[in-house]
Design a protein around this nucleic acid. Sequence first.
DNA 1: GTTATTTGACCCGC
DNA 2: GCGGGTCAAATAAC
Length: 395
Amino acid sequence: MAHHHHHHAAAASSEWEHKCGSLAAELTAGRDVAKQLQLILSFIPPPSSVHHYSSSFPSSSSVAAEQATTREVLVQKILASYENALSMLSTTPRMMPAQHHHHDPNRDHHDLGSGHDDGDIGTVVTMMSKSSPPGTRSGSPGSEDSDSGHDLFKDTTSSRKRKSIIPRWTHQVRVGPGMGLEGPLDDGFSWRKYGQKDILGAKYPRGYYRCTLRNVQGCLATKQVQRSDDDSTVFEITYRGRHTCTQSPPPNNTAPPPSEPAMPAADDRQHEQLLLNFRRGLNVVGVTDDGSEFDYSPPTSTYAGGSLFFPPPQATTAAMTSFAPPCSSVYHHSFSGGAASSSRSNDNIKIISYGREQSTTAAAAPPVDFPFGNMDHLFDDPTTFTFDNNAGFFS
DNA sequence: GTTATTTGACCCGC
DNA sequence: GCGGGTCAAATAAC
């Protein structure tokens, strides 16, 4: 770039804005393509289950499984990068240098069966608010950021604090009396504590947790756990950001008490609930135009974050639901004309993604919120979903 | 060996 | 400067 660069011209601001828009569009497009790739990959059976045509190799099954895992993880990482980049873009112009660090394919294992007797845990309040997350910086602890000038954005002329679109919500959780159970209540995700702070005026310190897969999959979800001042059996847990990683929920223990009718506060809450319901192993049944049904087999216990692809009512391009590995084959459904092509699914089902529909073209309409319709009642008896292809929502 | 937690330092916005 | 949030070195746990 030997061109002469202008100084800080006032006009640069709008130019910058414009470039940001292009950037966002580009990133969105990239993310969308990555999702498609993820989908496509899910349709390609892992080498193990492939009919061995003339495989002269021993082809141990473990290797195959590892490959599948690896490629899935890779796509997941790409997706996470896009998501994170987008979220960074949506906060402050300031940002950190990219951090591409190559990590070994680390095996992630989370201790699910921590033998926690969850006992009496009641989720009480749900609250939404837009946040002003200071640090959406990507995970890598400042390792190699030292050199290159990242004061590019320091100028902050525009100082347009875009409101963060990072979701933030709070649960109040009460632990039963007499339980030694403390802060780290098992909410189905594995967290890693990265800090603790004494909060002014608070009796108990606040714990800071982040998703354990942050460095592996770039998942930026965090939570804070604050013990209530007066009632020491109540914990206020503030979640920040949705999980973009893939995690398995714990096999729900015995005696999940009559689940609360879960007030349908906001979208994100509904998304959470949807995930929870999926995780509990409900059946999902889709209905096509011609009335035939296709059954998403019970997702036993595995699930992967992400978003379902559902088309807006008048979608012209084919969108699809996707439930992906570890199924050897998955249901694939095109909702565009109602023409359904569905393949078989075996045991486990993962949700690749959920939450928002994304069009394939960058210039197309902005993401459409997932059409949940009125599924509140389903929360009471979350055993079966039916997706009405015509109506475009679960019923 | 590995990964998680603890804990004071550090950063950043107010 | 203050306070909340995060980092990272030391330490603990595995």
